[in-house]
Design a protein around this nucleic acid. Structure first.
Lengths: 332, 332
DNA sequence: CTGAAAGCGCTAACAG
DNA sequence: CTGTTAGCGCTTTCAG
């Protein structure tokens, strides 16, 4: 900077002001300085600027991982979320620092903040980290979480209204005349739990008994979902519809069903959750609950900004509409 | 830092040395200081450290995007690459700054470096940016690229041996007794072009004529791949095998083929490229060319480190083995 | 082995 | 409108 100050015949302070668009500078001088900066490919050193101004325009995106499953981020949902967050942050002039943190040591996130690397962070993948996240919040680490809203929650979360989504998915199947509707997913934890609750509520509303034999426990990974579906088919429980807790599960389940001679949607109507890109292009195209990730990303960013300002924004549930495609509807 | 210096009754210089594991410090003092830092959740400010020491432990990952297709990173291959790079960089104690840059303004990458935000960067997705990348290299921006090796290339690239992969995939199909083998993908540019060359070479070696009618142009997106396959089927060109330039294309093509009454692999044997997670779990499981992304990520990092040291590492082609699954082989 | 002092590149008062 | 001065939090000679 001192270099171009010399070239322009002014002080570094003037250069700094010019480059930051200060009002208190003669337009003529500003333009001369800008031109020189351009010509010499000069850019202000971001680190020094932050150090001096106390500001920090870098936000963290934390994706916890389990040491056991290396590279487990197999769900397309995550990539999509990541892309939308990157877009939202870029748009708001933030840099995005990606951090893989061991899921059992989420407290390491604090170091990201304490060391000044990030001004705040988004954690995507809440799973069973509730306590650790609460601890972070208590330490006043600016953090927002993509996930469900839990009792005794000290941090701000943004998620979709999973119970309502589950309800609408199931009711849609009922409206298609289906009665023996299976649920597939991990009904005990995280977001899937709420989707399951919605499923139950819809059945109850329409006077259909909840049959525990039609609940198919399944993790979110493709292979395990397929295995779970195979095991279920072996039991010969008759079903005429399936609501899966994620598109990935739904698509893999459809594959197994098809391979075993069932027709989708004729024999089994299927609804998924997330509306990932693949859902539109599966065979048949998958009816699903759309998660508005662009909205979600902006909401996460917005909330994070509020947290960084010391406020305590309320957690939010975004509504997610049903998208009807061929997997749940007989052709007319 | 001055705070814990006071607490320890020493100068900040001593604290700095202790925290950086300097030899020239009494172990006893060091431990006392470390303990204090722990207790007070003190972490050195990364920015200030960098500023003073001139070092920078942040690397950039640049994912170019086209303004036209918002959020085009739909290919699971990218996420996987991203995850592996994040792992490799984390392991080597680097932070990872994710940056979405307009594909038509790759020169903006230079600002990332000039402003000191990153010490170097990996660009993933070379496509048609050859000239822009060359310009970056000429500006001495430390950059390495995932992609093919091109003539007049001033930057270092790491990629897989696409021609060889294409060759092996095609030869495998020939060895299965197939003769009318179609190629599907964008045979004119990028990595697909080299895969196509390998395809041609294998046909030639085995005395099979290259039939341009069996070349199915297709982009990498699911929807367009399906449309391309539908159009091809409408032409009633008989084929008994298909080599697709990516798994995503292959899986979508298989879907269309199945929907149209062809059996895979009986009527049409299919081989893909990449070995993404979904390939193992498709119906039927997809034979494909495995891209060793863990190796690739480490190679990219290694090369980048060399570039940052001012050296000019040679571009590399990683070998990618064929993985045989059910989509190309009749059950015995 | 440790402290004092200088300075990384920049911005923000405070004076002119 | 612009220059001078001080200092963000840290590391690193250079002296003790």
């Amino acid at each position: 900077m001192s270099d171009i100050a010399k070239l322009a015949g002014v002080s570094t302070a003037t250069v700094s002001r010019a480059l930051n668009g200060s009002e208190a500078i003669r337009p003529e001088t500003r333009e001369r300085i800008m031109a020189l900066a351009q010509a010499h490919q000069y850019t202000v050193h971001a680190g020094a600027k932050n150090l001096r101004s106390g500001e920090n325009r870098t936000l963290g995106l934390v994706i916890p991982y389990r040491a056991s499953l290396r590279m487990q981020v197999t769900d397309p949902f995550f990539l999509s979320m990541l892309g939308h967050l990157a877009d939202a942050m870029t748009e708001a002039q933030y840099d995005l620092l990606l951090s893989r943190v061991n899921a059992d040591h989420l407290d390491e996130c604090a170091a990201l903040y304490d060391s000044g690397r990030v001004a705040g962070m988004v954690v995507v993948g809440q799973w069973d980290h509730h306590d650790q996240l609460n601890a972070l919040a208590q330490r006043h680490v600016p953090v927002v979480v993509w996930g469900v809203q839990l009792p005794d929650q000290l941090y701000c979360s943004v998620g979709s209204d999973n119970a309502r989504g589950g309800f609408e998915a199931t009711e849609h199947l009922i409206q298609q005349g289906r009665q023996r509707i299976a649920f597939m997913g991990d009904y005990a934890s995280g977001e899937a739990k709420f989707r399951y609750e919605g499923y139950c509520k819809a059945l109850q509303k329409h006077g259909i008994a909840i049959d525990p034999l039609r609940v198919i426990p399944s993790p979110f990974t493709p292979l395990e979902a397929q295995q779970a579906m195979h095991r279920f088919c072996d039991q010969h429980q008759p079903i005429d519809a399936l609501f899966a807790a994620s598109d990935l599960i739904a698509i893999n389940a459809m594959g197994v069903l098809t391979a075993r001679g069932f027709k989708v949607p004729e024999d089994v109507a299927v609804v998924g959750y997330d509306d990932v890109d693949a859902a539109r292009h599966s065979f048949p195209p998958l009816t699903t609950i759309h998660q508005p990730l662009d909205v979600a990303a902006r909401a996460l960013l917005q909330s994070l900004q509020e947290v960084m300002q010391g406020r305590q924004p309320a957690s939010r549930q975004l509504s997610s509409p049903l998208v009807i495609r061929a997997s749940s509807q007989l052709p007319k």
